[in-house]
Simulated assay, not measured.
Amino acid sequence: MQHTDKIAFLGLGRMGAPMARRLLAAGHPLTVWNRTAAKAGALAAEGAVAAARPADAVRDADVVITMLTGPDALTEVADAVLPALRAGAHWVEMSTVGPAAVHALAARLDGRATLVDAPVMGSTDRAATGRLGILAGGETEGVAHVLAHLGTVTRTGPTGSGAALKLVANTAALGGVALVAEALRLADALGLDEDTARTALAAGPLTGAVARAFAGDAHFATALAVKDLRLATGAVRLPAVRAALAQYARAAEDPALAAADLSRAAARIRTHA
C-alpha cells in the first residue's frame, strides 16, 4: 500500500473528528460517515467526501477505521458495512469495545479483510496533534503508515489484545478517579483543607488519577466510563471496580452528567454518598 490509500473513517465524535482531520491533512483520500450527518460537514468542507451510509463510505476503501461509542454501535455498523467491504481491505477498529467484540468482528470477517484492533490512549488534544498512544493487536504492517499520523503504536500481541489492554488501562484509570473523589470526601468529613489534601494525594501513588479528577482540558463522557466499566465487570469478578461502576452509573442518571467529562462525575462522587 502507498501513502495515498483510500480511507473510510466511520464515527466523527470528539475523538474521531480530529483523528480523521489528521489523515485528511496527510493527503489520504478520505470518505467519512457519522450517524449524525451534520458532524461530517466540517470535514467535507475541508476536502473529505461525506457518505450517506456506512456501506457507501467503505465500498472503495483500502483502509476502514471505526471510532464508535461501543460494542452495539460496532455491531450495527458491521451489519451495514460487511456486504460492501472490499476483499483485501484493512479494518482498523479504534473504539473501546473490549476483546469479545473484536473477536466477534474477526469471526464475521473470516479472513476477507485484515483486522487490527487499535484503541487509543489520550484525549482530544492528543488526537488533534497526532500524539495518541495506540494499542495495536494483530498484524499492523499494512496500516503502520496510516497509524503513524495518529500517534505512537505499541504492539500488544494477537488480534483482541489491543482491546483487552485498553480495557485494563481504562478500568485502572476510572477506578483511580473514583477513589480520589472518595478520598477527598473523607478529607472533607475530617475537616481538612482541600488544597492540602489534594496536594498530598497528588504527591502519592495516585498522581495521575488526581490530575484526571480535576482535568479541565479533556473530555471523556461519564456515560463512556459506565460503558467501559460494565465491559470490565462483565469479563471477570471485580468487586472494587463494580463499586466504582455503581458510583459512575448513579452520576450518569443525570443526563447532563452522563454527557459531561468524568471530572464532573468525580465531583458528584465526592459530594454524594
Rank of each mutant, 00 (worst) to 15 (best):
V63M: 04
V64N: 05
T66C: 09
G70S: 02
D72E: 12
D72S: 03
E76S: 15
V77M: 14
A80I: 03
A80M: 08
V81R: 12
L82G: 10
P83H: 09
R86D: 02
A87I: 02
G88Y: 13
A89Q: 03
A89F: 12
W91P: 00
W91N: 01
E93M: 04
M94G: 11
M94P: 01
M94S: 15
V97F: 08
G98S: 07
G98T: 01
A100Q: 14
A101K: 01
V102F: 01
H103P: 00
A107D: 14
L109Y: 13
G122K: 13
G122Q: 09
S123R: 14
T124L: 10
A127F: 02
A128K: 13
L132D: 02
G133P: 00
G133V: 02
G133A: 12
I134Y: 01
E139I: 00
T140L: 05
A144I: 01
A144L: 01
V146N: 02
H149R: 14
H149Y: 08
H149E: 15
L150S: 10
L150A: 10
G151A: 04
T152L: 11
R155L: 10
R155A: 15
P158R: 15
S161W: 02
G162I: 08
A164F: 02
K166V: 04
K166P: 05
K166H: 04
A169Q: 12
L174S: 07
G175V: 01
V177G: 08
V177A: 15
V177Q: 12
A181D: 03
R185F: 09
R185C: 09
A189W: 08
L190S: 13
G191M: 10
D193G: 12
R198H: 07
A200F: 11
L201Q: 08
A202W: 07
